[in-house]
Amino acid sequence: MSLSRSTVRLLSQRTLSRGFATELPRPPPPTHQPVIETFSDTSKPRPYYAKHPPFKDLPREKSKWPLAAATLFAGVSGWALFMTFATNQEKLSSSVFRSIVRALRADPQLQEVLGEAIRPQPEWYLNGDPHVKGHISQLQGNIDVSFRVRGSKGSGTLYFTSIRKEKGAPFTVLRFKVICDDGTIVNISDAAPPI
């Protein structure tokens, strides 16, 4: 299909006269020349932030070692306290401890020195239970304990040691005495052996 010359001319005039929204008007030409500033010497450098106060150093990061050491110390201390409490409760619940206390209460010589109502002395840090030092190993044939006792007249420390020479043999009591706070030593009679 061919277009006539008049049609082509009409289309070209429309295209030239049409304005688009994206076209901006051209600025007018300058009326005078811009001022050019010249310098006779090199520029002097100045601080980048001359108007602002100088920067402060960033705070140093706190070391985490003290916190780790404190946590480790607290964990080890808690474990040690728990083990002390658990082993003490095990000694208190043993038949050997109950037999020793029964023999103490039945001894007439100890009743004369410490008075009536002889009992193990409670400790505040064990919630009112006595603290039994030493160990009770009946299977290994070795018992060696000491703890504080109290009566109506005074108090003292009990020492009990007993061993078994071989398996199946009876225990031999080596030491069963109370050293009172005033220095009196009371040997518990063999009439009521605890084992």
Rank of each mutant, 00 (worst) to 15 (best):
D57Y: 03
W79D: 09
Q89M: 12
K56H: 05
W65Q: 14
R46D: 10
F39A: 09
E23R: 10
V76W: 03
W79K: 10
K51D: 10
W65F: 15
Q89C: 12
V76L: 07
H32C: 13
E37V: 10
K44M: 13
T84Y: 05
D57M: 09
E37P: 02
A80Q: 06
P54R: 14
D57G: 07
K56S: 06
A50I: 03
P47W: 00
L92I: 10
G78C: 01
W79S: 15
T87L: 09
T38E: 05
A69L: 05
T22Q: 00
K62R: 07
I36A: 12
Y48K: 12
T22W: 00
A86G: 11
T31S: 09
P28C: 01
N88L: 03
Y49C: 08
F73P: 07
T71Y: 14
D41M: 06
R26T: 14
D41N: 00
P25N: 03
S40G: 04
V96N: 00
P53K: 06
P30Q: 13
F85V: 09
G75W: 05
F73L: 02
S63R: 08
R60L: 02
L72D: 04
T87I: 14
R26H: 13
F82S: 06
A80F: 06
P27A: 03
P47F: 02
P34S: 05
R60C: 00
T84S: 12
